[in-house]
Each structure stands twice: as structure tokens, then as C-alpha cells.
Amino acid sequence: MLSTPVSNKPAPQSEPLLDVRGLSVSFGRGTSAVPVVMGVDLRVGRQETLCLVGESGSGKSVTSLALMALAPGGAEITGGQVLFEGQDLTAMGPAALGKVRGRRMAMVFQNPAHSLNPILTVGKQLGEIYAWHTRANRRETRERVADLLRQVGITDAHGRLDQFPHELSGGMKQRVCIARALLCDPALILADEPTTNLDVTIQAQILDLLDEIKETFRTSILLVTHDMGVVARMADRISVMYAGRICESGEARAVFRDPQHPYTRALLDSTPRIDMRYEPGARDLPAIGGRPPNPAQRPDGCQFHPRCAEAGEDCRALLPRMTASGPGHAVSCLRRGSRVEENAA
């Protein structure tokens, strides 16, 4: 069942729905500022799923919040553009942002138990958002919320409206969160590890649901995960993040068939291939020797070189930049012939 979008201004099909250029985020200010996201480029096409992968602490969550022009306490977007449906969100005021957030772009969080307000009923907290954006009256709002709960596979949707989050199971809560994201027919859903906190069987159901939504609601999905099994199953395109930078991105097929960056290869080595059966259990990154750098004390040159078997002298001194390695595939690695970042510190 499809509902009418709140405001759908179709952009020319040629340009991507989301085009992120050089996005940077730092914690703290001035001389003590610690950059955690640096010069990130991302692109999400219409009705496409982009998977953002990387180890814990690589900056995936900070990046996905920044796509909404949000930042966790103490963090600040220090540079770059987030072009969404032709507008730069980083240059928008609060009022304009309020018309994009929750309406054109919506978010699903990692922990459904934490991302719902514990003292408001499901109907109230979802209804508040819908009513705020559409000025719908109470009855319309209730209908809309119940309708969406039904569409995300919640039985007895009307009865659930008056329940509190703690009365729902984990999987059910995540469905409610997905329904919340869909309230205003967004063009893009940002899902930050939406299945990490769920049981294995529920994980698969939620992934199915996301895939289904992509079709019925014609949305694009940016899926943050560190589970290569999920990537193999969901991704149209992949961006690999390491220590706050994108080190490889491309069509899922191309990346899985021919991973370029040593880090991507290490990620894929011990995880299911695209032609393998999906195994939700295999969710941790393979053991790569060493640890990612501390954001406050980054090495010179390529951030991955201390852990890289292929690293040479140049890798220790020079910062590679994203360079095309094939059709729809780019990598930043000097061993793969990437160019050097000129204005690197």
C-alpha cells in the first residue's frame, strides 16, 4: 500500500539523491580539536542501498548523523557539503533542516530500546512527528501511524498505538522505529547498524523488511554496518571507512569480486562472499593485526600503513586520495596507483 508523499520534488534523475563531498567532523574546538571524520565523499542513488562499512570507531555513526546536519555533543561539522535533493544541508538553518529531517531523510538507530522515548506511547511519539510535519488532525494521524505499523509487519496495529515501548519486544521496537522513519515518505533512510542489537532470526526479518521498504516506498537506504554478511546481502554499492576516511567505494559486485584496498581485502578474507550463503552470525570483523589509530594521534601518510603488509616508505609519508580504479570503483591506496592528496597536512 503506497501513501502519498508529503512533498516530493523530483530531482533530475541524473544526479544522485545524496551527494556528500569532503565531509569533515571534529570533536572539540580550536587547537584541541580532534578530527574523527575527514573529507568523506559518499553518493547514494535513487532506490539504491549504500552500505557504509568499517571497524568500530571508524566514524560511521558520526558520519551518518552529520548527513542530517546533526552532531553528537561536543562535535562539529567542520567542512564539506551534504547535497541532498539538490540542497546543501550543511548550509541550512534550523527551520529548513526541520523540513528535511524526518520528512525527506529519516533515521533508524542501532538500539531500538534507547531510541524510543520510554514515557510516551507508540501512538503519541510517532503521531507527534507526523502531525508536526503534515499538520494532520488527531484522527488522520492515528490512522497514518496505525497504517504504517501494519506495513512494517506489526499485528494489531491499533492496539499497539497505546502501548509503551517497554511493552514491545526488541524486534517489534525496531519495526516501530522503521515505521517512524517512514511516516512522511522519506526519500532516504539512514540506518545505523539497525540489526546489531537484535537476535539472529530477528536480524534477518528486519533486513527483509528494509529490502521490502526499498521497493514499496521507493526509498534509498544508507546502511551502516560492520557485518560483511549484511553487506553481501543488502548492498548495491559499498563505501569502506577506515579511521575517519573512505578508503574504497564502488559497486557491491565489483568490490566483492575485486577488492582493491588491503583493508577491504582483510575485511573480506574471513567473511562470506557475495556468492556465499548469508550467515548473520559472522558479524565481527576478521582479526586484522593491530588496532585503528587513536584519532588524537594519527600517523603520517596512509592511516592504514601501520597494519598494512604491503606498506612501503611512500605510504608512511604520503596520504593517498580516492582515485578511480575501474568503472564505478575507486580506492585510495598508493600501491593501487592512487594519486597523492596535495593539501594533506
Binding site: L70, A106, M107, F109, Q110, H114, S115, N117, I129
Partner: peptide
């Protein structure tokens, strides 16, 4: 808390 971030991400003022 996440639910506050979620409310912000939902466009509430």
C-alpha cells in the same frame, strides 16, 4: 540519550 537524537532526526523543533 538516543531518543533525543531520534527526535532531532525526526525534524521536531
Amino acid at each position: 540519550h538516543d531518543f533525543v537524537t531520534a527526535a532531532r532526526a525526526s525534524g521536531l523543533p
